[in-house]
């Protein structure tokens, strides 16, 4: 295992108007690990994740994935250079959204091919073969020619995961991947993610599923009010040290 982390974020700050959501956050993750970001609503966990692929532009701080770095605090970078930097950074990650955001006018297979063929310029035949393999991996073989609207919520989210994987990224980012699902559909999606974690993908997952995070995560970040309140291995979720973390876990694990 290399000594340099695959993902490294330093001093991320972000304010929406007067509301400072990130107050200087550091994050690093090694290749092949699963990182879970947890915390109460409004703690800034989704903003961190979206900073990693610049769907949210931090006010300052740096983000590096593999060899691509963006220094958001550096105002001297001109616009076209910045755009190139951002595109390079994005090319290292795929993203799974809370409500899948599949392209409704494209079939399942076309959803998977859009990135590899249209953006990366890969051969259609080769990319199609890979896409079919991915669909099989997420349990959706035979659904290639269906439209997203013909699938259940869980199936849609699994297509969303396959679409992110089809880019063959170094990192897959998950933004609350099961929050929009009916409870009985959550399991099938978590099973797929668990599968990815064990087969060596590098994952960063924002989630409310504490038990799932405890099982899967190599690293847990507990975020509170824009700062990382506690950080460590999955023991953070079994035996939290900080009072704030304990409170939060009590609330989510013992509802009522």
């Amino acid at each position: 295992m290399s000594t340099t982390p695959l993902i490294e974020a330093r001093g991320l700050r972000k304010a929406f108007g007067d509301n400072e959501v990130l107050k200087g956050v550091d994050l690093s993750a090694d290749e092949g690990t699963a990182t879970a970001i947890i915390g109460p609503s409004g703690s800034g966990k989704t903003t961190i994740l979206r900073s990693l692929n610049v769907l949210e532009v931090p006010d300052s701080g740096t983000v590096r994935i593999a060899d691509a770095t963006v220094d958001f605090g550096d105002a001297s970078v001109d616009r076209s250079t910045r755009r190139d930097e951002v595109e390079a950074l994005r090319s290292h990650s795929g993203m799974v959204f809370q409500s899948h955001h599949l392209f409704p006018h494209k079939t399942v297979l076309q959803n998977l091919l859009e990135g590899p063929v249209q953006v990366q310029g890969r051969e259609v035949d080769e990319a199609t073969a890979d896409a079919r393999r991915l669909l099989e991996q997420v349990g959706l073989a035979g659904r290639e020619d269906q439209y997203p609207s013909q699938l259940s919520g869980g199936q849609q989210q699994r297509v969303g995961i396959a679409r992110a994987l089809a880019l063959n990224p170094e990192v897959v980012l998950f933004d609350e991947p099961t929050s929009a699902l009916d409870p009985e559909l959550v399991g099938e999606v978590l099973a797929v993610i668990r599968d990815l974690a064990t087969s060596g993908w590098t994952l960063v997952i924002v989630t409310h599923e504490i038990r799932f995070a405890r099982d899967v995560a190599d690293q847990v970040l507990f975020l509170d009010a824009g700062v990382i309140a506690e950080q460590g291995g999955s023991e953070v979720l079994r035996d939290p040290q900080q009072e704030r973390t304990k409170q939060f876990l009590r609330r989510v694990l013992e509802p009522g």
């Binding site: 769907l55 595109e87 994005r90 795929g94 959204f97 392209f103 859009e114 990135g115 249209q118 953006v119």
Partner: peptide, 18 residues
């Protein structure tokens, strides 16, 4: 067209015209 469609297309690497 929902905002999420832009985000999804952006994360798979598309630029504005595409």
């Amino acid at each position: 067209v929902p905002r999420g469609q832009y985000e999804a297309a952006t994360t798979i690497g598309m630029r504005y015209p595409q």
